[in-house]
């Protein structure tokens, strides 16, 4: 996908984010203006800076959006249509892209380690499982080497941090 297309879509997301931040800023202002705070002056309210940031984000994202759709030979509407068509074609073409799927798989393993294994198991156990999982997934080397590196790696980490640095691991 052309970088301008990616950036155009991203700038639309940013515009939405900016609108949300502005609205949330006003809601913070409304909360601060009521009991027990009674901060009614907008400029000193905790919602003031978020509102300004939201507006600035919308403004600069619109500027960026305009830059992405600027084309000497075509009208803006045509460019937007063409860019969305290009994005859709890219998604269709890359649905079965092995490289992308492979990377996403690795990120999912990292996510499982961070959000699930670390919550349920002690650090050493979670990390051994994670390292083994990702080494085998990435086909790092022979199976016995993967096991050896995972186990020795975790032992080294635990010795260095828990015993040398006296840090309590999760």
């Amino acid at each position: 996908m052309e970088s301008k297309t990616k950036e155009m879509i991203f700038s639309l997301v940013l515009i939405l984010a900016g609108v949300y931040i502005t609205i949330e800023g006003f809601m913070i202002y409304a909360r601060a203006a009521s009991a027990p705070y009674f901060i009614t002056e907008f400029t000193v309210s905790p919602g003031f800076v978020p509102v300004i940031l939201g507006i600035a984000l919308v403004f600069f994202s619109i500027l960026h959006f305009i830059t992405c759709i600027r084309d000497k030979d075509r009208k803006p509407g045509e460019v937007i249509k063409a860019r969305f068509a290009e994005a859709a074609a890219w998604v269709n073409a890359n649905k079965k892209n092995v490289d992308i799927a492979f990377t996403i798989g690795a990120v999912i393993i990292m996510g499982v380690y961070t959000y699930i294994l670390m919550e349920l198991l002690p650090f050493w156990a979670a990390t051994v499982i994670f390292l083994l999982g990702i080494f085998f997934y990435l086909r790092a080397d022979k199976w016995w080497k993967n096991i050896l590196v995972a186990v020795l790696g975790v032992i080294a980490i635990v010795i260095v941090f828990q015993y040398c640095f006296n840090a309590a691991l999760p």
Binding site: Y113, T114, L131, D141, V154, I157, P170
Partner: peptide, 25 residues
């Protein structure tokens, strides 16, 4: 050094580095 060994190890270090600031998962 094989990056496929190194980088997951680095991620484990990232996890520790983030955790040790406040001892909070």
């Amino acid at each position: 050094v094989n990056k496929k060994y190194l980088m997951p190890m680095v991620y484990a270090l990232c996890v520790i580095g983030s955790y040790l600031i406040n001892y909070n998962l």
